[in-house]
Structures are given as C-alpha cells and as structure tokens.
Design a protein around this nucleic acid. Structure first.
Lengths: 346, 346
DNA sequence: GGTCGGCACTGGAGCGTTCCAGCACGGCGC
DNA sequence: GCGCCGTGCTGGAACGCTCCAGTGCCGACC
C-alpha cells in the first residue's frame, strides 16, 4: 500500500522491472508467470505474483500491445445522431448483449458515435493504431463502402446483416425476409387486403431486403401493398403513418420497421379518430418494453436483440482467433400478437 | 492503394519510418508535422502529410501512448446486470450525452459492464495500463471504496453524484434534495397527506440523500411519509408498490426513483382496481419517452440526462487538462405534471 | 564418464512513437 | 570578421513489455 502511494506521488510508475527486482528474477520471468505459461517453477511463479500484488502492478497495455499481444478490446462505431440514440432501445440492448460476452473474457468495448462518412476512418485508426482486436459493423448499407475499405486493411470484423451485404466478412444475421413473410401472412390471415409498411432508411441493407420481401409476399397473396420510407424516429414514423392514412382507400394494417415508429403511429391513429385495432392494425418490429407499455399493447415481431448482440460478439472472437467462422443465422424474429392487431372492421 | 494492400498482405505494417523515407526526412520531422507543431517548413510539412496519405499511414496509438501522449479515451464502467441495462433508458441517454462531447474531440469511450466489486480493478487496469486518460464514475455508494482506491492511484476522474460522496474528485451532480422537496410540496399542495416513495438501492448515495430530504420535507409539512426500497427494476418496483397499497391507511400518492418502476406501478394500481390519478397519484423520476407513452401519461421529475452526460464529459476533460475544475451543479430536475397526479379523491 | 535432453531462467533486441539535445546554416548586429 | 540567435532538421534514447535465442544446471542413459 505504501509503495503504491509512492508510485502515485509522481515518482515513477511501477513497471515489470520493479516487480522482477522485488521477486529476485528477470523481467522475462515475470512475463512468463503473468501469462501462466510454462517456464518457471511453481514456487517462483507464486513469488512473482506476490511481488506484483504487493506493488499493485498492472502491466501497461500500450507496451504489451506494442510488443504484440492482444489488446482485449473490440470496437463499435454507431452512425446515429447522439440525441436519437438514447431513444432507441435497440442499441442499448444490443450493446448489453455484446458486453455480456466481453465481460466473461475481461474485454472492453470501444465505442464511438460517428457521422456515416467518418466510420471507415475511425475503424482504420482503431485497427492500425492497435487499439482493437476487431470490430462489429452495424447498419450495413447496400454496397457499403466499409466492406472493401476495411477488408482491405485486414481488420477482423463481424458484420451484422445479411451475408449478401458482408463481402468477405463473416456475418451474423436475422432472416428478415422470412420474418416479413410471417408478418404479411398473419395480416392476410386476419383478413387484411390493404397493407402498408413504414420502413427505415432505404439505403440500409435490411430495409431493402424487407421491402423486397414485403412486396413479393403481398403480391403472391394478392394484397394491395406499399412501403413508405422513414428514419426510425418517432417524428418521421408518425409523419409517414399520417401520409398513409390520408390515402384512399387507406390501408387497414401497417407494419413498422421498429418499435418507436409504431408507438408514434398509435398517437396518429388517435388523431384520425381511428381505433386500434378495430379500424387499423399496427405491427411493430424489435419488440421492446415499449410495446408492452402502450394501450393497446403493440403486436410485434419479437427479436431477441440481447442474444443477437451476444452472438455477434461470440462470432467476432471466433474470427479474431482465426477460426474459419461461417456466417450465422440468429433467431428468426417471431410474431407476438398483442392488442394492436385484429381482423379489419368491414 | 497498391501500397496499402501490400501492407495488409502480411508484409509489415507501415510505420512512421516508411513515411519519413518516402518524404525524405527523419521520423522526428514526421511527428512534428503530424501534430502540427512548429519545427518544419510549410513545404516539408505538406510533403510529409502527402506521403502519409499515400501510404495510408495512421500512427500506432499503443506506441504513441507509450511514448507519453494522450490516448483520447475515457472510461466508463457500469455495475448492472447486462440484461437489465437494456431496459433502462437512463444509461443510454447518459452515454449518448457523453458521446456527443467525445465526438467533437475525436475521443472514444471505453465501456465495460462489471460486478460491483470488480470496478476498482477495472479502472486500475485501464489507468495504469495507459488505456484511458480519465474515467467517469457513476452510481456512487455511501463510503464508496472507489473513491480512496482511485484517488490513491491518481486517476483523473469525475464523479456523478453529490460532492459529499466524491472525496477529492470533482463531481457533477443534480440537486436531488431540492427536487425531492419540489415533488413533495407539489403533492402536498394537491392535498395529499399520506405520501410514499419507492427508492433505488439504499446503498446508493443519491438514494440516501433523497430519502433524507423526503423525510425532512414531509415532516416539515406534517405529512405521513414512508420510503420502501427497491432496485429500479419493474419487477421490484411493482412489488414495492403492492406492499404500500396493502397498508392501511394506504398512501394516496407515490413517488418513484426512476421511470421504469413508476410504469410498473400503473399495472399494480390496475390490479388493485385503483384508478390513476383519482385514487392514487404516481410521480416518476428520470422522465424519458416511457412516461409519455403510458395511459395515463406519467407525471415526472424531468431531468435532462443527455446534457447531464455531456456535462460530465466536459468536466472530465477539464480535469484531464489540469484545470482546477469545481464541482458542477447540473440542472435541477423539474416537475412535469401529466396525467398521473391529481388531488386525492376524498 | 561423457553426452544428451530438458527445465528454469536470463539478456537483449524489438515493437512504433515521441521528446530532447544537438547540429548546420544563414542572417544580423557590432 | 566574429559571435549570436533562430530556423529547420536529425539522431538516438526512452517508454514498458514480449519474444527468442541462449546459458547453466541437473539427471538420465549408454
């Protein structure tokens, strides 16, 4: 304890050499003992660890990373306005899932909010700067510039999105097309003939996939279907919903690409004097607490976002460790019928 | 481009020496140019930067940190079960606020979920390992062991909580006592005589402060007041509420220490056949989207969590840069009356 | 008794950057 | 003409750890 205080007193930080001296060995022996590798006797190992404890020494990660060891860090850059991020339950759950895996391995997450165009640069800095062992890439766009740029520099990464978007990277994905199909078939079974969808930004890969599936399945079932684009915010979601409800004939069911927009739509329906679900059915995506708190409760495509994050992290570790990891299909979202979907009034 | 590919091909990573060679100068000159310091001519500087661009070189942060420069990273460790974290809007908003500041300075956030007892160790590792320039400490407990341990090793940090909890650290805090007083006076003004409160864990510093203020103000106003302890989860919040409602006479108004518990209480009130706010008034804390989505909407103590996070980050930078930063009072939470508070039925 | 193998440990180079002392050179003042 | 200063740049040590090629020693085997 006294020694630690000394060190803090600006004298000089404790290094591996101090530990080695105290234990009466060379720095190399300390390294060996520290990483629990064969090469020192049990007695020496214990002596070294005791010395390290006594001095309160922690290896300097910058140095050890320079000398070639893992840094125990993975990176995540998110391209969303900071203000908006707090409102979206998705990311916090996703991050929580990632953390649940990192925690077990004593790893940390390096997080950064970026503008879309800066993301490549951030990952380059992190990777070439030796700050992360790998990254998780989210919100894949079509022909995403991150794919060629980052595979070009050899960054180990996992893509969260459909394999077709992932280029040479391993991906972890949910089968959006199948989920959309389930949603549409469900609404059709309830008797809806005019269905609409409010999607996330068109340039996102999964928006495109869902849109294509939505159109295809609706076509197959002979439904009237259309998609309007929004940006996941309550504001734009509400606006999109309003636009749809002004059309004649108006849709009797609307599917949303996240939960926040669906919640906003509840308010818009009230504005129009429409009762949910009698006059209008609403179906949310990314089921979170929100969907159970509203009145009526929102039917949703449930997706275990926490596990999704955890799976992405697990897969990233496999990639980092050089396992030839195949792309993984996470749970297919499944429909949870609640109070916002019903047969259309006739 | 070709060169970058070469580098990725496992040849050897590009270093400052490659850049120096290409520009026809020494590595020292590259450092000078890179950090925009006086010591090279404008022409040379441009030549060097061009060479760096051409080779796609980024300085290795491990090396530069070893050699004594800032690492552009701040740390945040959160002691909550991963599963629970996703449900709490507070942290994501707080982190978003932090990030909004970090972003402007091209800094990253190092995040880790921990068990309560591991947190000191994590910060030690980060600080002594040269991975962060400073940390933000949240969820301060009474006599928090982090305070002596981390001030002892010289970690630059900002405490989020009342200055009395912060020891030698600078703190950023909200005046919980004043806010509690406002809440209680408001309920008293509505005519409530029996009020209760569901608090967060008793060992948290701000719980204790709020409890003391709650008791004091209620005493001063001659109200019947009591506090029961929960843990911020919907589950325990609901349970605590149930316990309160079983007492006779039962309280006519309940204040909650976060929003999630207040939302859970809405359900419990329905169980008991009590109508909100006619039979029971509910007042939430940490106003988030949740409070506006329920029916009735929840009255809440609004607290701009995003700005709070931003302010904590700003203050941390001041501390890191050696400014003698004083503790800062963030916005005092203010009461937003919505649909869940009203005079008690008589 | 000599050789060989294996174990426990050491010494020193190397990782990529920064920082500091120092050098060369040109201009200016006296 | 000499000293002096300032500008623009270089060389090399230092940061703290790891890894690799030893070294010394002991026991086993022929």
């Amino acid at each position: 304890m006294a020694r630690q205080a000394d060190a803090a007193n600006g004298e000089r930080r404790t290094t591996i050499r101090d530990v080695a001296a105290l234990a009466g060995v060379s720095p190399s022996a300390v390294t060996i003992a520290l990483h629990d590798r064969p090469g020192v006797s049990a007695a020496t190992r214990e002596r070294i660890l005791a010395a390290a404890r006594e001095l309160g020494w922690r290896p300097n990660l910058a140095a050890s990373s320079l000398a070639g060891r893992r840094v125990h860090t993975v990176g995540l850059a998110i391209a969303r306005p900071a203000r908006l991020l707090g409102l979206e339950p998705f990311y916090m759950e996703f991050i929580s899932g990632i953390e649940s895996v990192l925690k077990r391995r004593s790893c940390s997450l390096l997080l950064r909010l970026v503008e879309t165009d800066d993301e490549v640069e951030v990952h380059r800095e992190w990777w070439q700067g030796g700050r992360v062992n790998g990254s998780i890439l989210v919100d894949l766009r079509r022909d995403d510039p991150r794919i060629p740029a980052l595979s070009g520099i050899g960054l180990p990464a996992v893509v969260v999105g459909h394999p077709s978007l992932a280029g040479p990277f391993t991906s972890v994905w949910t089968d959006d097309a199948a989920a959309v199909e389930e949603a549409v078939r469900y609404l059709a079974a309830l008797g809806h003939r005019r269905v609409a969808r409010v999607s996330g930004p068109a340039e996102l890969g999964h928006s495109a996939i869902r849109t294509a599936a939505f159109t295809a399945v609706a076509g197959e079932l002979g439904l009237d279907a259309r998609t309007v684009v929004a940006d996941f915010s309550a504001d734009q979601g509400g606006r999109a919903c309003r636009r749809l409800l002004l059309e004649t004939p108006r849709p009797t069911a609307i599917v949303f690409d996240n939960d926040v927009m669906a919640v906003a739509a509840l308010g818009v329906a009230a504005e129009f004097g429409l009762s949910v679900p009698a006059d209008l059915s609403l179906l949310a995506w990314d089921d979170s607490q929100l969907c159970q708190l509203t009145r009526p409760t929102l039917s949703a495509m449930r997706h275990d976002v926490f596990s999704f994050g955890a799976q992405a992290a697990e897969t990233l570790f496999a990639v980092i460790e050089g396992a030839p990891a195949d792309s993984q299909l996470a749970h297919v979202p499944s429909l949870i019928p609640r109070g916002s979907t019903a047969p259309p009034a006739n």
